[in-house]
Design a protein around this nucleic acid. Structure first.
Lengths: 216, 216
DNA sequence: TATATATGTCACCACATAGTGACAAAAGGA
DNA sequence: TCCTTTTGTCACTATGTGGTGACATATATA
């Protein structure tokens, strides 16, 4: 009952999260959010400016996207000392686990598939920056001729993990793999690791590398 | 002006295709379809029963899903005589090319990611049957211990191709790969082939196989 | 030709949507 | 205390939605 704008902003953002969790972006609208939050919709216009800007505020809240540490399980100090092969393996399996545990992030990614606006572009750009960071971490990517190829292969596998997770909400099977059981996901996880292993073996066969140590 | 129910059914189905092509499933509704078709909406109810059944009728029309021949480029007679390794390669690259050339199919697949109903389940089941067909073609899958693993790996790669194509409509980059140019897609295509090559090398190393010939 | 059926037009319903303007009550500053 | 700003409530518009019933006209059947 006390007039607290911060609290009502929270109520609005929480209501949005609830709506997203329930039915995705389908049911999201000014009226629905206001109703769910138990708040007059005019306040959404006042505090956020509109639905788009409300979504922007929500998307930039914490917890939606995993940090590097959540993704790889590596503290910043270990990151430099971890080999490329192991690092990419951690990224892929981490991606699988993290995205799977974030239904709201999944919902946003589904939305990104059908809508394009300033917000979705902004999200995409932020993620591409992360990729750029990874490439820097890999060493000058321009010089390594195998780097561009590896990145494309990584994109395919990363995208595959993403799609299977997004698909799991509306399908039980994908090419014979059960998406509803932990067993099925274990199969996928193993498959990802096997694929990467095989691919790395192939690459290292073609481009024999010095064992990567920490730089002085 | 002549009263021809078949013609108006066509007009309705065509209008639906137009709407899907324009803005995806977002803008699809009874009123919108009727308006686009220049037809009273009550006819949609009469001829199809409702929006869902209209979608069902549309989804089962020809041209949306590639045939085996379109997918692999192989006539029925060559199919049995093609090795498993080559066959799976053709399936993946065929999938890439075919889905990329079918924007309406992409739209349906995006829709399948957010909606679940009798129709989407039916579509999914039909595709899983295709997978089952492939497995039979591969020989008794239960007996081959490597088969389950290969299928999971295939699912990851297949899903990766799917996601990259669906994503291309609303993003320009994915992990540094340009989704807007033919060059970028060539990189993806090469990556898929490299991954599969590496994976097959690994599998055949572990399970040495007799060269597959046509059965008597 | 008479009659039944298929096809199409129109008006309407209840409800939801996005957005705006007017106003009352609380909180804070002078 | 008086005055201003913030926070919240309410009523309203214009438009869109899915869905239904009544009716007119054309086509085919008897």
């Amino acid at each position: 009952m006390a007039r607290d704008s911060e609290k009502t902003k929270r109520k609005i953002l929480d209501a949005l999260a609830l709506l997203l969790a329930e039915g995705g972006f389908e049911g999201v609208g000014i009226n629905a959010v206001a109703r769910k939050a138990g708040v007059d919709k005019v306040l959404i216009y006042r505090y956020f400016g509109g639905l788009d800007q409300l979504l922007a505020a929500y998307a930039q809240e914490g917890g939606l996207w995993p940090t590097w540490e959540e993704l790889t399980g590596l503290g910043p100090e270990k990151m430099g000392r971890t080999g490329l092969r192991e690092l990419t393996r951690l990224i892929m399996t981490g991606h699988l686990d993290q995205l799977r545990s974030r239904p709201l992030t999944q919902e946003i990614m589904r939305w990104e598939l059908t809508a394009r606006n300033e917000l979705t572009d902004q999200l995409a750009r932020a993620r591409e920056e992360t990729t750029g960071l990874l490439m820097e971490m890999m060493g000058r990517s321009d010089q390594e001729p195998s780097m561009a190829r590896m990145l494309a292969a990584g994109a395919v596998i990363h995208a595959g993990i993403t799609y299977l997770i997004l698909r799991a909400a509306t399908a039980d099977l994908y090419m014979g793999v059960d998406l509803t059981t932990e067993q099925g996901w274990q199969r996928i996880r193993s498959a990802v690791e096997e694929i990467m292993e095989a691919y790395w073996d192939k690459v290292e066969g073609e481009f024999p590398q010095k064992e990567k140590e920490d730089e002085p």
